[in-house]
Design a protein around this nucleic acid. Structure first.
Length: 414
RNA sequence: GGAGAGUUGGCUGAGUGGUCGAAAGCGCCUCCCUGCUAAGGAGGUAUAUGGGUAACUGUAUCGAGGGUUCGAAUCCCUCACUCUCCGCCA
C-alpha cells in the first residue's frame, strides 16, 4: 500500500510515477472521495464529541437524582444524526481503502523507465559456454513425466522419477545450505496461508485469480515469500535485531490463470513447483544494498552450478505490483535458444510493511520496515537448465561439483 | 469431535457500566546522584487519524464484527485465534 499522505500531498508526482508503470491513477476519484471524507469526518467527530459530553452530564444528573428526560431527547437527536453521517463516512472510507489497495508501489528512481519488458536492461552476463543443444528436457529424459501427472492431477503438473527426483532433492538441499551459509535462517512454514497474510504481501485482494483457494479462509501459497514475510506481520522489531534474513524451501502453487497456451510443454510453467526463497526485513536506508546482496546470493547458486545466466534490471512497466525495484536472473535455456527467468529479486520498500504492519523500533521512534525477497532459486527451472546445458547426447549427465555432497553419484542416468 | 478457560499498551498484568486511553511492574528516553560499574532518585513514554501555519486540539482503538444502553474494556450474540482436559489420530 502506498502512503496516503503522499497521495494527498503530492498526487501529481504520484500520478506521474505510476504512469511510468502503466497505471492510470484516477486522480479525480480520489480527490472527490477525500473531499467528502474530510467534511463527513469533521461532522461525525464533532457529533461524537458532543454526545460524549452530554452523556457525561447525563450520568451526573442521574447520580444526583435529577431530571434527564430533556437531555435524553437532545442526545437521541445527536445519535440519529450521527448514525446517518457515520454510515456515509464508513462507505467513503471503504471506497478509499479499496482505491488504495489497488494502487501498485511507486517505482524506485533507479528503475529504468519503460512500458514493457522490451525496455528491461541486461546489466550482466555470466558464463560464456553457451550450449547449443536443441533437445528439450522432456526429450532428454523420460524421468520427467507430465502425462502421468495429467492422469493423477491434470495439466501443468509433473511427476519426477529416479535420478531426476533425487537431483531435485539434492538441489533443494544445496540451495538451502548455501542460503544458510550466507546468513539466512531456515524456516519450515505452512503451505497454506490466510487472507491477512496474502493481503500483507500484496497478492490479495487484486490477484485472487492467480491463487488456489482451498477453503473459506485458506489459500495455497504462491511463494514462500508469503509465510516468511508474514512471520513479522503486526510486529515491532528492535533495530538491533536487523537485518532479519530468512529462507525456506516450499512448494509454490499458482493457478496460472490467463497463461493458457504459454509454456505448455514441460517443467517451465507448472501449477506446483519447488522454490527456495530468501526474505529480508531491513531498515529503509539499507534496502537497496540488501537487494544487491540478495541478488549476489541468488547469482552465487548459478555460478556454483556452472550455469550461464544474465541479470536483467526490470523497467517500470515490468516490475511486479508490490515492488519498487526488481532484478531478474535469467538462465540460459539451450533448447529454447534464449534466457529464461529463474529468479526474481525485488525491493518492496515500505509497501508490504505498511500493509502488513511491520515496524522497526529505533531510539527515536518507530519506522516502517523495508522488505526484500528473491528466489534462490526456482528448483524446477534449475533442474531443466542443468539437464539442457549438460546434455551431450549420451544417456548420462555429469552434475556440477557443487552438488557432490548432496547426491551419491555426480553422474546420473537420464 | 466434547468440556472448560482465555485474548487489555513494546512486554507482564490489573480493571464487571460513567471520573478508564486504561493501575502496577518491566523495558525504553531525559535529567539528578555516585570516581567507573552496580544500585538509587525525579520526570517522561500506546497507536492511528482529523482540524490548525503553529501552539494546540478533536475522534477512534482493550482479538474481530454486530447488539443492548444516554453512555461499553466491562453486559449480550456471532466469528477467529490461544491454552487445558477428554476422545481420535500421522
Amino acid at each position: 500500500m502506498i502512503n496516503i499522505k503522499k497521495l494527498r500531498d503530492e498526487i501529481d508526482a504520484v500520478e506521474n510515477a505510476l504512469a511510468t508503470r502503466g497505471y492510470a491513477l484516477d486522480k479525480d476519484l480520489f480527490i472527490n472521495l477525500e473531499k467528502e471524507r474530510k467534511v463527513l469526518q469533521v461532522e461525525v467527530e464533532s457529533l461524537q464529541s458532543e454526545r460524549k459530553s452530554l452523556s457525561n452530564e447525563f450520568g451526573k444528573l442521574k447520580s444526583q437524582g435529577k431530571e434527564t428526560d430533556e437531555l435524553k431527547v437532545n442526545i437521541d437527536k445527536i445519535n440519529n444524526k450521527l448514525k446517518d453521517k457515520d454510515s456515509t463516512l464508513q462507505t467513503i472510507l471503504e471506497k478509499i481503502n479499496i482505491f488504495l489497495l489497488d494502487i501498485p508501489n511507486i517505482p524506485h528512481e533507479s528503475t529504468p523507465i519503460g512500458l514493457n519488458q522490451d525496455n528491461n536492461v541486461v546489466i550482466k552476463k555470466y558464463g560464456d559456454n553457451l550450449s547449443t543443444n536443441s533437445v528439450d528436457h522432456l526429450d532428454i529424459t523420460s524421468n520427467i513425466d507430465t502425462e502421468l501427472a495429467a492422469k493423477l492431477s491434470g495439466s501443468r503438473f509433473s511427476v519426477l522419477k529416479g535420478d531426476i527426483a533425487k537431483l531435485q532433492r539434492a538441489l533443494i538441499s544445496f540451495m538451502l545450505d548455501t542460503a544458510i551459509k550466507n546468513g539466512y535462517e531456515e524456516y519450515y512454514v505452512p503451505f497454506m496461508a490466510n487472507k491477512d497474510s496474502l493481503t500483507g504481501t500484496g497478492q490479495l485482494p487484486k490477484f485472487e485469480e492467480d491463487l488456489f483457494k482451498t477453503t473459506e479462509n485458506l489459500y495455497l501459497i504462491p511463494t514462500a515469500e508469503v509465510p516468511l514475510t508474514n512471520i513479522h506481520r503486526d510486529s515491532l522489531i528492535d533495530q538491533n535485531k536487523l537485518p532479519i534474513k530468512l529462507t525456506s524451501h516450499t512448494p509454490c502453487f499458482r493457478s496460472e490463470a490467463g497463461s493458457y497456451g504459454r509454456d505448455t510443454k514441460g517443467l517451465i510453467r507448472q501449477h506446483q513447483f519447488e522454490k527456495i526463497e530468501l526474505v529480508e526485513v531491513v531498515e529503509a536506508k539499507n534496502s537497496m544494498d540488501a537487494l544487491n546482496g540478495l541478488l549476489n546470493n541468488a547469482e552465487e547458486i548459478l555460478q556454483l552450478l556452472e550455469l550461464p545466466y544474465q541479470v536483467v534490471e526490470l523497467c517500470t512497466g515490468d516490475i511486479g505490483f508490490s515492488a519498487c525495484k526488481t532484478f531478474d536472473i535469467e538462465v540460459w535455456m539451450p533448447s529454447q535458444n534464449t534466457y529464461r527467468e529463474i529468479s526474481s529479486c525485488s525491493n518492496f520498500s515500505d509497501f508490504q510493511a505498511r500493509r502488513a504492519n511491520i515496524k522497526i523500533k529505533t531510539h527515536s521512534g518507530k519506522d516502517l520496515a523495508h522488505t526484500i525477497n528473491g528466489s534462490a532459486l526456482a528448483v524446477g527451472r534449475t533442474l531443466i537448465a542443468i539437464l539442457e546445458n549438460k546434455y551431450d547426447g549420451s544417456k548420462e549427465i555429469t552434475l556440477p561439483q557443487a552438488l557432490k555432497p548432496y547426491i551419491e553419484n555426480l553422474t546420473i542416468s537420464i
